[in-house]
Design a protein around this nucleic acid. Sequence first.
DNA 1: GCGTCCAGGTCTACC
DNA 2: GGTAGACCTGGACGC
Length: 294
Amino acid sequence: MEIRIPVPRDFNYKRTALSHGWTDLPPFEIHPETLTITRVLDLDDTLPVTVVITGTKRAVHVEVPRKMGKRTSDSITRDVRHMLRLDDDLSEFYSAMRAHPEFEWIPTAGAGRLVRSPTLFEDLVKTICTTNCSWSLTKKMVQGLVNNLGRESADGRRTFPTPAAMAAMPTSFYVDEVRAGYRASYLKELAERVASGALDVEGWLTSELPTVELKKEMKRVKGVGDYAAENLLKLVGRYDVLALDSWVRATFARTRNKGRTAPDAKIARYYSRFNSWRGLALWCDMTRNWIEND
DNA sequence: GCGTCCAGGTCTACC
DNA sequence: GGTAGACCTGGACGC
């Protein structure tokens, strides 16, 4: 069966699907040419389901392999809306970008929706797995988690593991199977805290704390430093942070600083004119060339 | 084949 | 509050 989800007028499926590396990490898969996103979704009280997502200017289409009841169908719709940021109101952001000729392309292209996972727990684990390593190692670690601990859907693909599934494994599993190295104890501790209810990471999505305070709370998780916390803040819809990492610094140097390394303060100054939207303006600016002719 | 460097950083000890 | 050094892994690179 197919679920059709209407999208905002400024939505760009291609820009969203390729907004950052997340769709390249399991249990997401993205087809390099058609940009079809395949994703395994965990359903509470039934077998996980593999959905295939495509998009146009008017709607997102979700192909589901079997007939679903209304409750399940609603759950899938909710997850897809969440992942593709369909409920994000970017009108203020686009208005701010139109005031700067070099950034006008952003509202024109409909850029700025950063793909996220169905749960912030998944985003948090994946973010820890991106730190201090190559992208290929990040993929290897995430693949290890999904292959070993994910629930299987009918087509053999697997979900991202739940906190409980991860908490049940010993630290040695994260060292030997996931190849997480020094991150192993961080992942184990995080899963235990979330599974026990001691830490409510999903609550960060709707937290009313000021960004500075929320960032402090995020950094209480072992393995989460400035970059990781600020990356997560973007995924909960807060863009008054930059999330500078080595790739952003190198890209800024190449595209905005004549090839010379720029101090973080200079990068911050450059985007400060965008105030509460500076993090999103930076990310769109750095990734503009990921897509041509959109 | 081997050693070194470093990648989508963070933690701890120390000042 | 700021900083140096350690930390897992694995691919790229130079020799």
